[in-house]
Amino acid sequence: MRSPGSVKREFLRKWLKGLQVYSSSNNEMSILERKKVIKLSADVAMASTRIHSNSKYSSSWSRALMAKASNDASNAPLLSHVLGSDNGVSADRSMISEKDAAKRNLVMMRNKRIKSKKILRRSCSNKIRSLRRKAAHVVDDKGRTSSNIVAKKLVMKRTQVLKRLVPGGELIMDEISLIRETLDYILSLRLQVDVMRHLANASEKLDSM
């Protein structure tokens, strides 16, 4: 168990490393570009902190974020800089291999998903059919089953939205791990917001002085 301070420090260090790449590479950027870069580097730094700290149980949202970022070839210097900022080459290599592993993991999950989708569809159609039969059967004396179905639909819809919000959430099939990922993601988002707000406050103050 790590203290929040150390996680924040690590995030800040990685983030600044990532920002340094851009500030040193090209100084002429529009505001929107700068914003995009800042956000991307912050996200990548956050994800890398989570990947790094979670050797025991990995959080898949950070892996998904990294994989998404590494799909874009223009982000390569940033990624290598943020990831390799720890202990020189060896850490770099291990991190890159981890990135590959994340990619492979994603592909595997996708394959598995396609496979399991068929099974799911089959069983779902069976279930829905039986549910309908049951609903048609029961609604006559009690109106509860139909409302149950409506509530289930509402929850399903929201779960879909949540899956879209959490990075890599579309690949998560079961709700337990989705909830765990959401918890983890919320906490790290909070941490990120916190550090970013500190930095923004500090730089604005420096400006006003």
């Binding site: 600044l16 923004a200 400006d207």
Partner: peptide
Amino acid sequence: INHVQSLQRQVEFLSMRLATVNPRVDFDF
């Protein structure tokens, strides 16, 4: 969902804020 969205929006907003700050920030970094 609202909470996650607001946090994400906050990250966007903060990065925007950091971007609009004087480029001197980079030198500070």
